[in-house]
């Protein structure tokens, strides 16, 4: 009996061995960089022209500077506005499509085709997608040409030079890239709802609208929160689309400049103090959001 037990625990050391690749790679390429980023946020360390300033320990000065500048709040605002502009239609459309796809009585034909199509944009390279949109919506591009042929416009509309349209197009790309993914997640959640609840609601005379608002939505709440928080985490990382779309300028007048685009500028100019402080700020933000997702997940480890 005793020998059997020691034999099993001899096997169990293999658990550590199999974990080595993950732990080593995670520590080297994620954990050490994270600690290094936090460390750098306490130092003044940048180049002014040809002179290297620092590294000098400055305590929390980088954070003070970061939050004192109106820039950071503007970029934070830009990021959130463009996220909301994409997310609101995304969640509404996804709820609608999810309800339709999971409705047995609706029996939509070609549901597989539609799912394939709406998920497709998610896999398209964001930089190629943005470049395509930039070309299509440029002053002499096909969209202006079509709108003028249809008589909707008399002269080309400068989509890139107006805050509303520039943000709107960035949000549209984000919407197109993500609504298919959200639809499939919500649909999976809706399929998991006990059908007897719908039958009971029908017996009580509920119509499909009432069933959706009184049965589906309340039961879907955890998944909706999950989708919202993960989308918000993704929204805070918004970079490829506005970066390519505006060539990194955040035009017009920095109204499409996101937090990560700002971080990217610091990374290129190697302003380690300011970049570090901004990274830590983003880390704390996403960390708080991650904890919410973590609490929502029902990850259970079976015990021995």
């Amino acid at each position: 009996m005793k020998s059997k037990k020691s034999k099993v625990s001899a096997f169990n050391k293999w658990g550590y061995i199999f974990l080595i690749p993950f732990i080593v790679v995670y520590s080297v390429f994620q954990l050490i960089p994270l600690l290094n980023t936090i460390y750098n946020s306490f130092f003044e360390n940048y180049r002014a022209g040809l002179t290297q300033i620092g590294p000098n320990f400055v305590g929390l000065k980088n954070f003070g500077d970061l939050f004192a500048k109106p820039k950071i709040w503007k970029y934070f605002g830009n990021t959130m506005i463009m996220w909301v502009m994409g997310f609101v239609p995304q969640i509404l459309v996804s709820l609608l499509l999810g309800a339709w796809f999971s409705d047995n009585r609706l029996r939509l034909k070609a549901a597989g085709f539609f799912k394939t199509v709406i998920y497709l944009p998610n896999l398209i390279m964001a930089s190629a997608f943005s470049m395509l949109f930039f070309t299509l919506f440029s002053g002499g591009g096909p969209i202006n040409s079509i709108l003028m042929d249809l008589g909707i416009l008399s002269q080309p509309y400068q989509f890139m030079s107006n805050t509303g349209s520039a943000r709107g197009l960035i949000a549209l790309i984000n919407f197109l890239m993500w609504f298919g993914n959200t639809t499939i997640l919500l649909m999976a959640g809706m399929m998991g709802i006990d059908t007897s609840l719908y039958e009971a609601a029908e017996v009580d005379g509920a119509n499909s609208r009432q069933k959706f608002f009184r049965v589906t939505l309340p039961l879907l709440k955890p998944i909706l929160i999950y989708v919202m928080i993960t989308s918000l985490i993704g929204g805070l990382q918004m970079f490829d689309v506005p970066q390519i779309f505006t060539n990194g300028t955040g035009d017009p007048a920095n109204t499409t400049m996101t937090l990560i685009m700002y971080l990217n500028k610091h990374l290129f100019s190697r302003n380690l103090g300011a970049g570090g402080a901004l990274s830590v700020f983003l880390f704390v933000l996403t960390g708080i959001l991650s904890i919410i997702v973590f609490k929502l997940s029902d990850f259970k480890l079976e015990d021995d």
């Binding site: 960089p33 600690l35 750098n40 990382q237 990560i260 610091h266 990374l267 380690l272």
Partner: peptide, 12 residues
């Protein structure tokens, strides 16, 4: 740590 984006550790 699943949700931590790579961007926030890019500097380090």
């Amino acid at each position: 740590v699943m949700m931590i984006p790579t961007q926030v550790t890019a500097l380090g």
